[in-house]
Amino acid sequence: MKKTVLITGASSGFGQATAKLFAARGWNVIATMRTPRDIPGTFVTRLDVEKPETIRAAIDAGLQRFGRIDAVVNNAGYGLFGVFELTPDEKVREQFEVNVFGVMNVVRAVLPHFRENKGGCIVNVSSGAGVFGLPMISLYNASKFALEGFSESLSYELGALGIRVKIVEPGGVTSTKFGERSAKEANLPPNGIRDYDTFVSAANQVFDAMRASRSAARDSTSEHVAEVIFEATNDPSDRLRYVATSDILPLVEARRRTSESEYMAFMRSSFGPKLPPVG
Rank of each mutant, 00 (worst) to 15 (best):
M264G: 04
A57G: 02
L134T: 12
A109W: 09
R56G: 15
I229K: 03
V49W: 06
A183K: 13
A109T: 10
R194F: 11
D38P: 03
G130W: 00
M136L: 15
G149K: 00
E50Q: 15
I69M: 05
S270N: 00
G102K: 04
V5F: 05
R211G: 03
R255C: 06
A209T: 05
K20F: 06
E157Q: 11
F230K: 02
R218W: 06
L251H: 02
L86M: 15
F230Y: 15
S155R: 12
L139D: 01
V228W: 01
V100Q: 01
V103N: 02
R108Y: 03
V206S: 03
R255L: 05
V125K: 01
V72M: 07
E253D: 12
V49S: 10
K91S: 13
A203N: 01
L188I: 11
G171T: 07
A186W: 01
E157N: 08
F14A: 08
E169M: 08
A129P: 00
D38R: 11
P112D: 12
N28E: 09
R25Q: 14
N28W: 02
V125I: 14
N191D: 15
L139S: 02
N74G: 13
K2L: 13
F66H: 04
N28R: 07
L240Y: 04
T198N: 09
I59Q: 03
E85N: 10
R241N: 04
T8W: 07
T42Y: 07
V278N: 07
P277N: 04
S138F: 06
E152K: 08
A160M: 13
N117G: 08
V73A: 15
G9Y: 07
V72T: 10
A31Y: 04
E169A: 07
A203I: 05
R257W: 09
T174K: 06
D197R: 09
K20E: 15
A129G: 13
P190E: 15
L275R: 08
L6G: 08
V49M: 11
P189E: 07
A226W: 02
W27V: 03
G67A: 08
E94R: 14
A57P: 01
M104C: 10
E223H: 09
R108D: 04
L47T: 05
I229Q: 02
P273G: 11
Q16G: 04
F199R: 00
N141K: 00
D197L: 13
A142P: 04
I122F: 06
V103H: 02
R65F: 08
K3N: 12
L63G: 04
G102D: 03
L47R: 05
P135L: 08
I167E: 00
T245F: 10
P135D: 09
A31P: 03
R218Q: 10
I69Q: 00
M1G: 06
P36S: 13
A244F: 03
Q16D: 09
G179F: 06
S215P: 00
N99I: 06
V5I: 15
F43A: 06
V100T: 07
G67T: 04
L47I: 11
V125A: 05
L134A: 15
